[in-house]
Design a protein around this nucleic acid. Sequence first.
DNA 1: TTGACACATTCCGATATAGGCATATAATGA
DNA 2: TCATTATATGCCTATATCGGAATGTGTCAA
Lengths: 120, 120
Amino acid sequence: MARAATTSDAFNAIAEPQRREILVLLRGGERPVTELARDLGMTQPQASKHLRVLREVALVRVRGAGKQRLYGLDARGLRPVHEWVGGFERFWSESFDRLDEYVQELKQARQEESQDDDDQ
Amino acid sequence: MARAATTSDAFNAIAEPQRREILVLLRGGERPVTELARDLGMTQPQASKHLRVLREVALVRVRGAGKQRLYGLDARGLRPVHEWVGGFERFWSESFDRLDEYVQELKQARQEESQDDDDQ
DNA sequence: TTGACACATTCCGATATAGGCATATAATGA
DNA sequence: TCATTATATGCCTATATCGGAATGTGTCAA
């Protein structure tokens, strides 16, 4: 099989830098496709494609506005992502992290020297 | 061009469900490859490949321990992800968000009914 | 109806996966 | 050195992109 479909969930959707930029822009309010494309330096079809992906994972919503289609942010889908990543917070914010790393480095150095430990 | 390489950054690395599972397991401490593979129901080569990706974006670190190679979590690379996603927090936590969405839904419903409106 | 404008979709080509399988490499012990 | 255990890699296939260009669709105005 190939890689999981990018349209499967928010994790995949935000793996694309351009899509992240789109989401950031949309924090400023609804925008039509052409404007997004122009501001991000991409072609209109490209913008439409990325917006489609974002729509499929429900990170944006659309509404017709005459000729235009205004895309708006729907950030609720980012909440699970935030929570998942947040589950690792203590592993980078606590000072023990740096300490732990230091300990690991020591162990490794010691091991590379003696090369006979099996106490893990 | 094709999609950005999955090895480019943490966003891409965690787009893969199995890699997320590996990271979660590693919160419990260092583990050898075979154990990870067994616990996650994947083959050893598969685990090695995923670990390689995680290594390349510095989300895990390795150290030799005799015959084994113990993989450990290095969550610092997740911090930028957490911060980026956190930038959208007010868009899902503020009550105005649900209100706004409700309004959007009303507009859209109304639009789909009359189907000849141009008052947007 | 026709033309113009805003978007969406399709087709194409190049590439990057992810998985399965076989195999190479590394470390240990007899 | 040889066998064993633990990992890493290489090769192959199917598939999922992403980008570009062309074209289809929808809306509005004259």
